[in-house]
Design a protein around this nucleic acid. Structure first.
Length: 802
RNA sequence: GCGGGUAUGGCGGAAUUGGCAGACGCGCCGGAUUUAGGAUCCGGUAUCUUGCGAUGUGCAGGUUCAAGUCCUGUUACCCGCACCA
């Protein structure tokens, strides 16, 4: 038999699938639906990465299996094409981003098709297509209408190199996510989306979805809900009260000072009351110079300045306490002011030690001469709380007390902040708002959407973070849609997260020009049944899109609450050197080359076989060859084919077991062991030297999701009828998975001394009887008392002797 | 600091959830085939030991007839978040 020519075969089937629309999803079919979603790629100039292949291969296998099982599968793909790399490339080369994007999408499409992914190519979306971003703008306007999109002047994270305002998410660690230069703080008028209003809904929604536990946890931590209390402290010298947030109202009797953030407005309001205002000013200037990074990352000595001339009163015991400013308190969390309890908070403790402030123990259990005690225990020095357990009763009693006296109340805080929703860049969705001197912020009328991105020559951002759009007079100058007078357009564009926040909805009805998707199609397809992607997207992208989706649900646009019913994540593919792939290290594997040399089926099989799907694993060229051998061995099965519409006696249980194993492992994403099971079966077939038609047929079916090309080819060559993709996934019989007799070990005192063949259904008495006839066991037991005899059915015998 | 994860042969990794540790693959060794190389096929391959046997899942204890798996303590590495009051 001729060697397997993967090049011809793979091309042949890819063409057939495309021409026949084999994998196109059917709207409103009678079949049960299954919506599988993978994170759509950013079409970069570098082309696809093997990481993309692994990310898509998981649900690709699940989707192909589900189709064979009779589901109507929606497995779409698209392109998240707005973003800085394309724009930067355009600036460098002078080629328009539209052109760059189209070229890259073409490249990605060709690569994806070469791998044989069973995407529905009729539903491809491109976030930069005006028919798509029309609806991104539409959702934005709906949010504006409902007060969820607003403008505010605040300090923003600003990247001086990229000249853009960054969200907190994009500037983690004080470094720009894109160019990694230091982020500085800058005051600017920016757009925000009020995601904090949805914090609780986003938390509650997690209860009804099936995400990996660590995915849920990361989202919970990201939202960062904490419960505590707001307490108002009187300031002796001025009428205004100082409001703080604390999670530990039980420790109020231990408050010996207060700290406010350097940016706290109280300082300016009452500067004439502050005796040492110039020293305070100096300290504030010093803090402003520090980047967010220095302020949060380089945690060393506590610094601060006391506000001379200002004292606060502890509301529970009336004691006067000093007020300091220090940069360990952030304006952006809570109220920008804290009550300091040095005995029970390490930061306050360090500050108190440095400034010589009293430390009063209110919870017993630690040694406050050494460090703050943050554990639980009995309350002391706390008046009406004395003797209570701080954890059990004190917090509730204190909150009760605060409410009664009108000095405070229960409160909730979130770490999550509102979403800074704009970029001063060209290659993004224009924000459809008009600034009118008379009417204020006026939305572009819905019927005028899409507000198209104008053609420009020069994509360089303006100085001071001005969008390139600001230079286009024909775009900027317009009439106010409300009063008709001269007005100016918003020139900022949306951040890259915008388009990806609702793309899964567009796949359901990608060509609709009346709505983002038709209601009946939304009802039929419903939520994404299974979403797979990278761990790096489980907070930002997923939280943003859950927020958008929940908003659309609340205003009645979509009929289901949560967008993703199940979420899994694949592990990274590391370079052959065991380190994350990067151009600079030169350890990047190009999937194209793998397809050229070994074929798509080998690439697909390898990325799933290389290790646990959810775990990182290094690339190994020689292991790829192992998968090549596996594929070739499947081809050669045809040489040992014998007639037979049944499984052979010898292979029957192996066939049933393998079908069971592969069926189950695919569902739990244990692709590596599924493939291993097929390899094992293959070894058994080779040992035997023959395979019946029935065996080959079912083997082809279970291998098909992994290696679709070769299995279709053999299916056709051996005349199993029609195309494999129209056949049905084989079933297995639990009863037939069992061997007639199995070998089990016999232990004496936990050490294996013999092995016996028994029927898997044999009872303990029967097995033990057999065991005692064994010479070796008799020797081991001779002269000793049998204490205990254990038989675990089908597993092991252990005899305990003394 | 807080949260999460990982640790098993020369390598990637399995292990029915407490029941034969090392499935499957790679690599390596030997054999067959081949003019040769490659490819392919067959056999072997945790460690120590000539053998009997003993040891072995980061480390130290414990529970159990039985522990990679459970409990206590501990170390290293990876990933998040990070002065969140």
């Amino acid at each position: 038999m001729a060697n397997y020519n993967f090049k011809l075969v793979e091309q042949k089937w890819q063409k057939i699938w495309e021409e026949n629309g084999t994998f196109e999803a059917v709207d409103n079919s009678e079949k049960e639906k299954f919506y599988a979603l993978v994170e759509f790629p950013y079409p970069s100039g570098a082309g696809m990465h093997v990481g993309h292949i692994k990310a898509y291969s998981g649900l690709e296998v699940v989707s192909r299996k589900r189709r064979l099982q009779g589901y109507n599968v929606l497995f779409p793909i698209g392109f998240d094409a707005y973003g800085l790399p394309t724009e930067n490339y355009a600036i460098k080369t002078g080629i328009h981003p539209r052109k760059v994007t189209d070229m890259n999408i073409e490249k990605f499409t060709a690569q994806l098709k070469r791998v044989g992914f069973s995407f529905d190519w009729k539903r491809v979306i491109d976030t930069t297509d005006e028919n798509y971003y029309k609806w991104t703008q539409w959702i934005f306007l709906k949010m504006f209408e409902h007060g969820l999109a607003f403008r505010d002047k605040t300090l923003v994270n600003y990247c001086p190199s990229c000249k853009v305002v960054l969200s907190n998410e994009d500037s983690q660690g004080g470094k720009c996510d894109i160019c990694h230069s230091d982020v500085v703080q800058k005051s600017k008028d920016v757009w925000y989306l009020r995601i904090t209003e949805y914090a609780d809904k986003l938390l509650e929604g997690l209860e009804e979805v099936d995400y990996l536990p660590n995915v849920k946890l990361q989202q919970i931590n990201w939202i960062g809900k904490s419960r505590g209390a707001f307490v108002n402290f009187k300031i002796n010298e001025v009428p205004e009260e100082l409001r703080i947030y604390t999670t530990r109202p039980d420790t109020l009797f231990g408050v010996t000072f207060m700290v406010i953030a350097p940016e706290h407005p109280l300082i300016d309001t009452y500067q004439e009351k502050i005796a040492n205002f110039s020293a305070v000013e100096d300290y504030r200037k010093e803090c402003a110079k520090k980047t967010e990074f220095e302020r949060t990352q380089l945690v060393k000595d506590k610094t601060g300045v006391r506000l001379e001339g200002i004292t606060a009163k502890n509301p529970v015991n009336g004691k006067d306490i000093p007020v300091y400013i220090s940069d360990y308190v952030m304006m952006s969390y809570g109220t920008g002011a804290i009550m300091a309890v040095p005995a029970h908070d390490q930061r306050d403790y360090e500050f108190a030690k440095k400034f010589g402030i009293d430390i009063i123990e209110v919870i017993r259990g630690g040694d406050i001469s050494v460090e703050a005690y943050t554990g639980d225990g009995e309350m002391v020095n706390s008046d009406f709380l004395n003797g209570y357990d701080n954890k059990k009763d004190s917090i509730a009693r204190m909150i009760e007390f605060l409410k009664e006296k009108g000095i405070g109340e229960e409160g909730v805080q979130y770490k999550m902040k509102d979403w800074a929703f704009n970029r001063q860049r060209y290659w993004g969705e224009p924000i459809p708002i008009v600034h009118c001197e008379h009417c204020g912020l006026v939305p572009v009328p819905y019927e005028e959407l899409p507000l198209k991105l104008p053609e420009v020559e020069n994509f360089e951002p303006g100085q001071d973070g001005e969008s390139p759009l600001a230079k286009i007079d024909s775009f900027v100058n317009c009439k106010c849609p409300k009063c008709g007078k001269d007005a100016k357009r918003e020139t900022d564009t949306m951040p890259q997260w915008a388009g990806s926040s609702w793309y899964f909805l567009r796949y359901i009805d990608p060509h609709n020009d009346k709505a983002l998707a038709a209601p009946e199609k939304l009802r039929y397809w419903g939520a994404v049944d299974w979403y797979n992607g990278g761990m790096e997207h489980v907070t930002r992208h997923m939280i943003y899109s859950r927020f958008w989706h929940r908003f659309l649900y609340d205003i009645g646009v979509v009929p289901f609450k949560e967008p993703y019913l199940k979420r899994t994540a694949q592990g990274l593919i590391l370079g052959p050197d065991g380190v994350k792939m990067s151009k600079s290290r030169g350890n990047v594997i190009d999937p194209n080359e793998v397809v050229d040399v070994y074929g798509a089926d080998v690439l697909r099989t390898y990325v799933l076989f290389m290790g646990d799907y959810e775990q990182a694993a290094p690339w190994s060229e020689s292991s790829v060859k192992g998968c090549k051998r596996f594929i070739d061995r499947i081809w050669k099965l045809q040489e040992m084919l014998t007639e037979g519409d049944d499984y052979s006696k010898e292979l029957s249980s192996a066939m049933h077991k393998t079908i069971k194993k592969v069926s189950e492992d695919i569902e739990s994403m244990k692709f590596n062991t599924a493939i291993a099971a097929v390899m094992s079966l293959l070894n058994q077939i080779y040992d035997k030297g023959s395979i019946t038609r029935a065996e080959l047929r079912d083997l082809l079916l279970i291998v098909n999701p992994f290696a679709p090309h070769i299995t279709e080819e053999i299916w056709e060559a051996q005349g199993f009828g029609g195309q494999l993709n129209a056949a049905a996934w084989p079933s297995f019989d639990e009863a037939k998975c069992v061997d007639e007799s199995i070998e089990i070990p016999v232990q004496v005192n936990g050490k294996i001394r013999e092995r016996i063949m028994v029927s898997p259904t044999a009872e303990q008495a029967e097995v033990l009887e057999l065991v005692h006839t064994l010479e070796r066991i008799q020797e081991e037991c001779a002269g000793k008392t049998i204490v205990k005899e254990i038989y675990v059915k089908g597993r092991i015998v252990n005899i305990v002797v003394k």
